[in-house]
Design a protein around this nucleic acid. Structure first.
Length: 557
RNA sequence: CGGGGUGUGGCGCAGUCCGGUAGCGCACCUGCUUUGGGAGCAGGGAGUCGGAGGUUCAAAUCCUCUCACCCCGACCA
């Protein structure tokens, strides 16, 4: 491709309204433009990158026997009503009516439609297994689109769905997807982890996420260097350092006007780990619930939600109504409210509110002075020990670039996607669903590959394999060598960008660094006098000088 | 949804507090010079200052309402 026939509007300055590095660089280098919050235009360069990612995904999905299909984005409500998600999913779903006043929605995922098709067409165990996938637009009215193309309201997803007769089949397809996903992310040149994750509203039994480490990520992953355990902190198990509990009899202590943990801890001169923090929440299932974590730990709300169901924080009046005392002095002893406690509180005696204004209680032994339901509620963090092997855990910010779910029969039962097995018994199809966000791969690649001058693409994702930079296009010799190389490399099957613009060298160098094509071929009068051109590596900036005739060989073409 | 911020030529910004001719840099167009890291000189085009209403002799500037976007949080199949 000739630069003069390619639309690449590069910017000299960072756009004002951007924070994430990938957002800034993809804007500046002319890959994307923003239409509105969470809606992005992919310019020619950006689309080339996405297409490279799509090609890799297709090749690897095809390699495990998955079949590409295409499902409508516009979908009737009744299928979603049948599975219950029409009501479960809130304002995140774009809803509309057609001209006949029928409820419709824009697909945010395709479990329903894929399962609908399976229900329509699959009759016998002989029809199984099936794996169907598509690369299709999804729409989600995100509460807060952010970070450029990392969280958008409209995006392309590679989503696949497996249909099996039994759990062994599901496991096989799950493993095949793991294999395919590992290859996809490896080919994309990303640093990534596969971690245990929360199935969430997918309602499945098991789930993993693929995570690309980056400070721009929204998720945090706990990683054990000892045994390799990796999990999203939404469910990561960990053993916090031992508590420094006070040896004390069970007794009240006067703590006037000392409400916060810091205040009480400082007032009594006792380490925060010797305390219990109490949080009153109002749940849909159990009414008020008191949740306890150690004073030095943080409660993870998703863990609490798994333990007690949907909840909200109690307000001041509710705290008084249920516990008889204002916030700051609430504790687990002496009331009938359902209590859940973090497992790290199983050992030791703790200080907590006495449910009496200006008093705390020392020497509370969970299980003795009150009876909680035990759950893992604390958030894993750096310095905790791995619950499996005891080695230290560390945490890392990550971008979620894909996920895989064992769905089981949640959708097949609702939509009556059943088959007859060898004995003639009707059974629901066992399903899995598997997603990859190509735009997130693109953003993660930029987050992981850039320097102060611009993007550094992994070879497989770059919009071009090599960029030819003739420094002075009006110099006859330079132009001639550039054209020859352009033709030769193209004929060898490479994606070549020829910067044929009549611009000064500095501009071309700056733009080339911004665009991030991995190899640059610099052709200038200086080199041509010695009979050489320069092959420059974008990442290392190393330059090797070779005769024009040796360029293809040197590039490994 | 809660909190914070920003809207001024294509882009980045100043001007707003304290009302009085709409500015700067880059980009763009023309000409000449220049040509290995975002060139120089000269000339030129381009903005109803997010929108609506109000106060005033006079509003980018003050007041009211509203829209959009960004950031933090909540939320996130």
């Amino acid at each position: 491709m000739r630069y003069t026939s390619l639309f690449v509007p590069t910017l000299r300055d960072d756009p004002a309204d951007s924070e994430a590095i990938s957002h800034k660089l993809l804007m500046r280098a002319g890959y994307v433009r923003q239409l509105a919050a969470g809606l992005y235009i992919y310019l020619p360069l950006g689309w080339r990158v996405l297409e490279k990612i799509n090609r890799i995904m297709k090749e690897e999905m095809d390699a495990i026997g998955a079949q590409e299909v295409s499902m409508p984005v516009l979908q009737p409500a009744d299928v979603w009503q049948t599975t219950g998600r029409w009501d479960e999913i809130g304002p995140e779903m774009f809803r509309l009516k057609d001209r006949s006043d029928r409820d419709m929605c824009l697909g945010m995922t395709h479990e329903e439609i894929m399962t609908w098709l399976a229900a329509l067409e699959i009759r016998s165990y002989r029809d199984l297994p099936q794996v169907w996938y598509q690369i299709q637009t999804k729409l989600r009215d995100e509460a807060r689109p952010k970070s450029g193309i990392l969280r958008t309201r409209e995006f392309i997803m590679k989503d696949s769905y497996s249909f099996d007769m039994d759990t062994e089949g599901l496991q096989k397809n799950y493993d095949l997807h793991i294999k395919a996903y590992n290859k996809i992310y490896s080919r994309a040149g990303l640093k990534f982890y596969m971690v245990e994750s929360d199935p969430g509203m997918m309602g499945g039994a098991m789930a993993h996420e693929y995570m690309a480490p980056s400070p721009a990520g929204e998720d945090t992953v706990a990683i054990c260097e000892g045994c390799g355990y990796m999990a999203n902190v939404e469910l990561a198990r960990s053993v916090p350092p031992a508590a420094k509990c006070l040896e004390s009899p069970y007794e009240e202590v006067h703590t006037p006007e000392k409400r916060t943990l810091q205040e009480v801890s400082g007032f009594l001169g006792i380490d925060p780990s010797g305390f219990m923090k109490s949080l009153l929440v109002i749940t849909e299932e159990h009414g008020p619930v008191l949740a306890l974590v150690r004073g030095d730990q943080e409660l993870h709300e998703l863990k609490l939600q798994r333990a007690v169901g949907a909840f909200r924080h109690a307000n001041k009046d509710e705290i008084k109504d249920h516990l008889g005392v204002e916030a700051g002095f609430i504790g687990p002893v002496g009331h009938e409210i359902m209590t859940v406690a973090d497992e790290s509180l199983k050992e030791g005696a703790y200080i907590s509110g006495a449910n009496k204004k200006h008093y705390h209680m020392k020497g509370i032994v969970p299980g003795e002075h009150f009876t909680p339901k035990w759950h893992d509620l604390h958030e894993a963090r750096d310095g905790d020990a791995c619950s499996a092997c005891g080695a230290p855990l560390r945490t890392e910010k990550c971008i979620e670039i894909g996920n895989i779910f064992k769905l089981g029969t949640r959708y097949s039962e609702a939509l009556k996607a059943v088959f007859l097995d060898e004995e003639g018994l009707e059974k629901p199809i066992i399903m899995g669903s598997y997603g990859i966000g190509p735009a997130r791969i693109m953003a993660a690649a930029v987050e992981q590959g850039h320097d102060k001058d611009g993007i550094i693409w992994p070879a497989a994702l770059s919009p071009f394999d090599v960029q030819i930079i003739p420094l002075n296009i009006s110099d006859e010799e330079t132009a001639k060598v550039a054209e020859q190389l352009y033709k030769e490399l193209k004929d060898a099957g490479m994606d070549v960008l020829l910067d044929d613009r009549d611009l000064r060298a500095g501009v071309k160098f700056k733009d080339a660094d911004l665009l991030g094509v991995p190899k640059h071929i610099v052709i200038g009068g200086r080199g041509l006098k010695e009979g050489v051109v320069e092959i420059k590596d974008r990442a290392s900036k190393d330059v090797i000088k070779v005769a024009p005739a040796d360029v293809l060989k040197t590039l490994g073409g």
